[in-house]
Write a protein that binds this DNA or RNA. Structure first.
Length: 935
RNA sequence: AGGCGCGUAGCUCAGUGGUAGAGCACUACCUUGACACGGUAGGGGUCGUUGGUUCAAUCCCAAUCGCGCCUACCA
């Protein structure tokens, strides 16, 4: 599986293809129900994607974060369960199959309910749930053997059980109310399934009603003229002087044989808006419905379920909504009642699924009483039994539950959980788990199905076997974390909270982790219309822009689609013909670097490329590591005793990185873990550690070779395990090739590094910081004078602190190596004193002064022939200016008596210490400046 | 209308009551036996605006401007 040498460059396609099957074959993702398994449990329910869906960036983000959490906990020794599944997605699925049938010229009604459902199951077997395979491409470590489909027999049983329990406790009831109706889907919708399109352009149309028995008129304004067919009153404000004389008068409906009263309603009517008179259509407007209830008005439904005018609409019967509007306006005009119109912006309620305009309709539906359950769900968060992270979402959660309306749960669909209620011949209703024996042949089951979110709300426990008391339920409920997008906080999270508490007595999770929504690089929502959708698989496998475009804007001219796409993703400008295969790991790592507080995550392909380079870096560091370790046989356990500065420093860095990762994962700051690992591996490990030990290990004569090999092996192997939750494929590949610290068959089940196993070494860190500062200073001088990287330079280090100087002298090999001294000879070390400030530097040399914890250190670089007096004067001036600026700031602080008196002692002391070092550095620079002329 | 949030380097974003950080982009030099998917060094920000609290504010408070999202909605 991992034979042969590592090739020069990292090729994700080649590496990633191999590991997923191995993991599944080895069963490393399986959680255990066994009673004798005493490990603590960690359970994350996966938000079940729609059976119609395919992987999009949102799934990729969810999948990355959840997988990282699950893999982290699994490696930390938890019995980790990531519960996967698929949602049956009522309307969406029904629509997909219906459309397919329509292409064959058949409607579902011609087919009949049973046959139609059979066809859906056939469709599902063939092409449904493909997303579960795509999630595997991403590396999702779910326990697939436990996967559930919300229409499975056991899931359906849980749904029926829940419904019956809710009915028996009086929370589930049937009522006739004004509800949201989608004429396109021909079903009721819950409030949450209605999206408001803001600022739609419409018009405010005015027309007159004649007052019965008089030639007076009253003018009303409306954005929906056709609904006047259902008007049963005109309301005015009781105090409005314009209409006082009309109170109680009747108006003549121009098309229907009906008199309509003028009523007074101070709640609804704003006398300043429009004409101050409002037509009232109780059967088709939520406000009007309330007015109707207050005044006992008739509710006249004027629409068919498909949104056409029904028999109550006089001569307009049969016209659909849009035509009816034109026709009514025209007819009013003919009668001389139209009073013109003006443009008006309004909000259009649209069906989330079909996009059709939602019609308020009076209808008999099943409702679920929410108040009690909502209050329990609120308490769970208030008392901290469930924690919402980031906490700013708590307010949104509270606001929703405090203002929640009863949930309309019935849907006039065929695909879904049919409501377990039976209607008798005389209007009786029986609710039961199975068809009751006493219900004869003349009883029919309620034809409606439940809102898809009803079964989703049971997800955290129905998947574990509820209502049975299973071992899985006992072990894994409540779940540990739920991770999802904030956009379904209401739809799903709040409802799971309510159902979880109601049915099990316990909130379903300890933490709810919310993440943002992925948008394009310019911050626009991804949508087909905008042509800015990116398929995560195209990022993983690579794709040409013309392929990408053919998916984003099918049918559009390629040039136009490409322009749109480029505009949405400016960073792709220099990416040639398309995305290279970034690989799942690079996509994951990129997504992991966005903090959860980001509501919108602007996907920047260039950023993925950057992290793809990081993976290449890890790959090549491993190649180097393998070379340096040679036939190194030891298993990388922590080196027993480490004496050299670089090794002590390296282990201390590792200690801090491990600690940071644990904190970050525990606090759901995966972004912080990612960035720390990036920083650690690239800078600490590659730029410094590997560069420092490379020549020594190649030479192989230094007495520290053995401990360095041990440290190197240990650090690399630990790094793979540290990074594995984020980038599982490459780390498995490299780890399998490396000497291992464990017998584990996969890094998936290897132990996550623990900080207490590696010592922190503050002294080594401080010493190394000084060393690094000196090396950087020397390199800066080289660079400023354009010394060729291969050329060596003579180097002198001067410092007034004898102990510091000795420490530096001990690192002379490191300084020679990284600052590149002439012929690799050791730098000259000089103890500085007052007189040495004036001591002449070698001709043609330049100096930099580094402020360290041990005072100012002079770094003198010999640059024969490269340095001129002017140039040197200028650079010393630059350094001086910087120091003077810093000194001025400190002096200002220290000269303020209130600072010295009131600031904490340590802050004042630190300022003094800084001042001292800076003054020393300043003195050296001034002296150096005076010597410039001698160059 | 109400709620929430955001405005920090050219771009995408971190961050902290004590003299500003990352990635990418940019500039210069360099193909050195892990890596040019690379190395070394560098330039770049009065942290939206105005007040206040504080010894000290980018960070806390208030106001203001701009932007985004959510909930509700005037016919």
């Amino acid at each position: 599986m991992t034979e042969g040498d590592l090739q020069k460059g990292y090729e994700p396609r080649e590496v990633e293809a191999r590991w997923y099957k191995y993991w599944e074959d080895q069963g490393v993702f399986a959680a255990s129900d066994a009673e004798d398994d005493n490990r603590p449990t960690y359970h994350v329910p996966m938000p079940p994607p729609n059976v119609t869906g395919s992987l999009h960036m949102g799934h990729a983000l969810r999948g990355t974060l959840e997988d990282a959490l699950v893999r982290y906990h699994r490696m930390c020794g938890y019995n980790a369960l990531w519960q996967p599944g698929i949602d049956h997605a009522g309307i969406a699925t029904q629509t997909v199959v219906e459309r397919q049938l329509l292409r064959a010229g058949v409607t579902r009604h011609e087919l009949g309910r049973d046959e139609f459902i059979k066809r859906i199951w056939e469709w599902k077997a063939e092409s449904g749930g493909r997303i579960a395979l795509q999630q595997r491409v991403l590396g999702a470590s779910a326990d697939w053997a436990r996967s559930k489909f919300t229409m499975d027999a056991d899931m359906s049983r849980a749904v029926r059980e829940a419904f019956v329990q809710l009915y028996e406790s009086g929370l589930m009831y049937r009522a006739t109310r004004l509800i949201n109706w989608c004429p396109e889907c021909q079903t009721a919708l819950s409030d949450l399934e209605v999206d408001n399109e803001e600022g739609a352009n419409g018009e405010l149309f005015e027309f007159a009603y004649r007052v019965d028995g008089s030639d007076e008129q009253i003018v009303v304004a409306t954005t929906r003229p056709e609904t006047m067919l259902g008007d049963t009153a005109v309301a005015v404000h009781p105090d409005d002087p314009r209409y006082k004389h009309l109170h109680g008068k009747m108006l003549v409906h121009p098309f229907v044989d009906r008199l309509v009263p003028v009523i007074c309603d101070a709640i609804l009517v704003d006398p300043k808006f429009g004409t101050g008179a409002v037509k009232i259509t109780p059967a088709h407007d939520f406000n009007d419905f309330a007015v109707g209830k207050r005044h006992g008005l008739a509710e006249i439904n004027i629409f068919t379920s498909a949104g056409a005018i029904n028999e109550n609409g006089a001569q307009f019967q049969g016209l659909d909504r849009k035509r009816a509007r034109t026709a009514v306006k025209h007819a009013l005009d003919e009668k001389g009642l139209a009073r013109g119109s003006k443009p008006h912006q309004l909000n259009l309620p649209r069906c989330q699924r079909s996009g059709g305009v939602v019609e308020p309709m009076i209808s008999t539906q099943w409702f679920l009483s929410m108040k009690e359950m909502a209050s329990a769900a609120l308490d769970a968060v208030r008392t901290g039994k469930t924690q919402i992270i980031p906490a700013e979402w708590e307010k949104t959660y509270d606001h929703f539950l405090e203002n929640i309306q009863d949930w309309c749960v019935s849907r006039q669909l065929w695909w879904g959980h049919q409501i377990p209620a039976w209607h008798g011949p005389n209007g009786e209703i029986r609710v039961a788990r199975e068809r009751p024996a006493e219900c004869g042949a003349d009883w029919v089951q309620d034809p409606d199905v439940l809102d898809t979110w009803f079964s989703s709300a049971l997800w955290p426990f129905s998947t574990l076997g509820w209502p049975d008391k299973t071992a899985a339920l006992a072990k894994f409920y409540p779940a540990s974390d739920l991770e999802t997008g904030y956009d379904i906080l209401f739809f799903w999270v709040a409802r799971m909270m309510m159902f979880g508490i109601h049915f099990t007595g316990k909130p379903p999770f300890k933490r709810v982790l919310l993440s943002g929504l992925i948008v394009d690089e310019t911050g626009e929502k991804m949508s087909k219309v905008k042509g800015n959708v990116i398929d995560p698989l195209d990022l993983i496998y690579g794709a040409s822009f013309s392929d990408i475009i053919s998916k984003t804007l099918p049918g559009a001219p390629e040039a136009e689609a490409l322009t749109k796409f480029r505009k949405a993703y400016p960073s792709t400008a220099n990416m040639g013909g398309g995305f290279p295969a970034f690989g799942a790991d690079a996509v994951r790592f990129t997504l992991a670097t966005y903090p959860p507080s980001n509501k919108r995550i602007a996907l920047t392909p260039k950023r993925i490329e950057g992290y793809r380079h990081f993976l290449n870096k890890i790959w090549n560091a491993t190649r180097l590591g393998a070379e340096l370790l040679g036939e190194f046989p030891a298993v990388p356990t922590k080196p027993a005793r480490v004496t050299s500065l670089v090794n002590r420093w390296m282990l201390s860095r590792l200690h801090h990185t491990i600690a940071t990762c644990h904190t970050a994962f525990d606090e759901y700051r995966i972004d912080e873990a990612s960035l720390e690992l990036y920083r650690f591996f690239w800078y600490d490990v590659c730029d410094w550690y590997l560069e420092l030990v490379k020549p020594m290990l190649r030479a192989g004569v230094d007495p520290a070779v053995e401990e360095t090999k041990a440290t190197l092996a240990y650090v690399l192997e630990s790094s793979y395990r540290l990074m594995h939750p984020l980038i599982p494929f490459i780390t498995e590949e490299l780890w399998q090739r490396f000497p291992k610290s464990t017998q584990a068959k996969s890094i998936v089940v290897a132990e996550y590094p623990r900080a207490e196993n590696v010592p922190a070494d503050p002294a080594a860190e401080a010493e190394m910081a000084m060393l690094q500062a000196i090396i950087v200073a020397a390199r800066t001088i080289r660079s400023e004078h354009e010394v060729h990287p291969a050329a060596g330079v003579p180097l002198t280090i001067r410092c007034a602190d004898a102990r510091a100087l000795e420490k530096l002298r001990a690192q002379s090999a490191a300084i020679s190596l990284l600052a590149k001294t002439e012929g690799g000879v050791a730098p000259t070390f000089e103890l500085a004193d007052a007189s040495s400030n004036k001591k002449a530097r070698p001709a043609g040399s330049t100096v930099s002064v580094v402020a360290t914890e041990s005072g100012a250190v002079e770094v003198v670089v010999g640059l024969k022939g490269l340095v001129t007096a002017e140039k040197e004067r200028a650079r010393i001036d630059r350094e001086l200016k910087k120091i003077e600026k810093d000194l001025a700031a400190i002096a200002k602080k220290l000269s303020s008596p209130s600072f010295v008196d009131k600031a904490p002692a340590e802050v004042v002391q630190e300022a003094h210490a800084q001042q001292k070092t800076l003054i020393e550095a300043q003195g050296r620079l001034v002296a150096a400046q005076e010597l410039v002329s001698e160059l």
